[in-house]
Amino acid sequence: MPEQQSSRESEPVQRFRAILERYYRRDPAAERQAANRLVDQYNAKLQEADERLPAERTRLEAERETLNRLIQEIQRLDERLKQSRPSDSATSEAVAAYNAEVLSRNAQVEQVQKRQADHEAKAATFQESVRKFEEEADALKGRIDRMRAETDAWLQDWRQWQASKQDLAFFRELNRTYAQLCGSSAGMVLEAAQESPRADFLAMRRELGQWAARQQAGQKNGLMILPAVLCGREECHLIVDTGAQIVTIPRSLVEVLKLTDRLGEDVEVIGAGGISIRGPKLDLPRISVLGSQAEHVEAVVLDEPGPGVDGCLGLSFLDRFDWQIERKEQPRLILRPK
């Protein structure tokens, strides 16, 4: 019976992992950089060809012209020898002179044939280098085109995924499934096992939080997403926004932390961006951020604001400290005891 239950629990793990692989484990910026490096290689290869191949072709053409002139000289010599062929009555001196010219002509022919064979070998080598260059350039261009097409197709898929709000729906479903698993007796039994479904969901939540933090770091808008630990045991990722009055966390984490009996009445607070929101009030026993800890922190239970982001780290936590946001290339939260 336990084996069948483990098999059923592995199915959602596999499904969520497949979505992570499809949408969150690719780095389009790195893929574009890789494609750009290939473009640089392609351009360098073209430049090398532009510098080398025309010069080699010019040298071969000059050699060919020289060979043609030598062949023409031999043809003229052959015509002259044909006309000056000694008759039967010619003197021995005339015959000897003619034979000497024939020997000289034959020596020239031999030299031209050697040079012609050498030229043909060079021409064959040149043609092979041109063929190889064209083959390598075409292969490189094919790789670039495929990489760009694959990245463009993925980006289009990703934008559609975001536009239809499936990214947030996915994260909320993952959190609900995680909460259900933590609330089941099977989940509690498997909690200590490294390969348990609960460990898998913890790892996926952490991966999504880290992904969200990287995405936010690239926005250059002064906001940041930080890991936090709730009640000394549950990791989450919260967006720091000094415009938010209060800490928020989702109901799924309330269930994981077994704090549903602490939920109070609905209250209206001003959230990030000045938006008025309502949700049940909660006294969070403990929050730790960057090694600083606060107890009995006022919070409100709201849905997750974005994929990988569990909630907001608002002033109900920050004002427990002498806090400062250091703004350099990347903002940094500094918390000092009051």
Rank of each mutant, 00 (worst) to 15 (best):
M1C: 04
N175A: 04
T58C: 03
K281I: 07
A294M: 05
S84K: 02
F16N: 03
E101D: 15
L67H: 09
P250S: 03
V267Y: 02
A62E: 11
R336T: 12
Q47R: 08
R286D: 00
V289D: 06
A179E: 00
V247G: 07
P280H: 06
E56D: 12
S288V: 04
R8H: 14
E128I: 00
A117W: 09
V301D: 08
E11N: 02
G314L: 12
D145A: 14
L53C: 01
G218P: 01
A97S: 11
L38R: 13
L70W: 06
Q219N: 03
Y24L: 01
A62M: 03
S10D: 13
P280D: 01
P86N: 14
R32H: 00
R251Y: 13
L253K: 05
D322E: 13
D200A: 15
I325W: 06
I249T: 03
G222L: 10
R198W: 02
K82Q: 08
E73P: 07
Q324T: 09
L223F: 05
L70R: 12
D50M: 11
L282V: 15
P305T: 14
L259K: 10
N68Y: 11
A96S: 14
A217N: 11
K82H: 07
L46P: 01
S288N: 08
D303Y: 10
F201P: 04
L230S: 01
N68K: 07
L257M: 10
R286N: 04
F170T: 05
E11W: 07
I275W: 00
L181N: 00
L103Q: 15
W161R: 12
E65H: 01
G274R: 12
V256G: 02
R105D: 01
E3A: 13
M224P: 04
R148L: 12
A121H: 07
N99M: 12
E63D: 15
D310Q: 03
A137Y: 05
A123I: 03
F126G: 05
Q116A: 05
E93M: 13
Q41Y: 06
N175F: 00
R148T: 09
V256Q: 05
S292E: 08
P86D: 11
K281D: 11
S184W: 12
D261T: 14
A228W: 10
R52N: 08
Q14A: 15
D78P: 02
R233V: 10
A179R: 04
L202F: 01
Q113R: 11
L190H: 05
L313T: 10
R131Y: 04
R327T: 13
R332W: 08
D118Q: 10
E61C: 14
G308A: 13
A124E: 10
E61K: 14
E295G: 00
A179C: 05
E265G: 15
P280A: 10
L174D: 10
E48P: 00
A193T: 01
F201C: 07
S129L: 07
R320C: 07
E120Q: 13
D138S: 14
E73M: 06
A212Y: 09
G274L: 11
P227H: 04
E329N: 09
G314F: 08
A139G: 07
A272M: 14
A217I: 05
A217D: 15
A199T: 07
Q219V: 02
S196W: 00
A18P: 02
K258D: 15
G279D: 00
Q41M: 05
L257R: 02
S129Q: 14
L168C: 09
E136R: 14
D157C: 03
R80W: 02
V267D: 09
Q108N: 02
E255K: 13
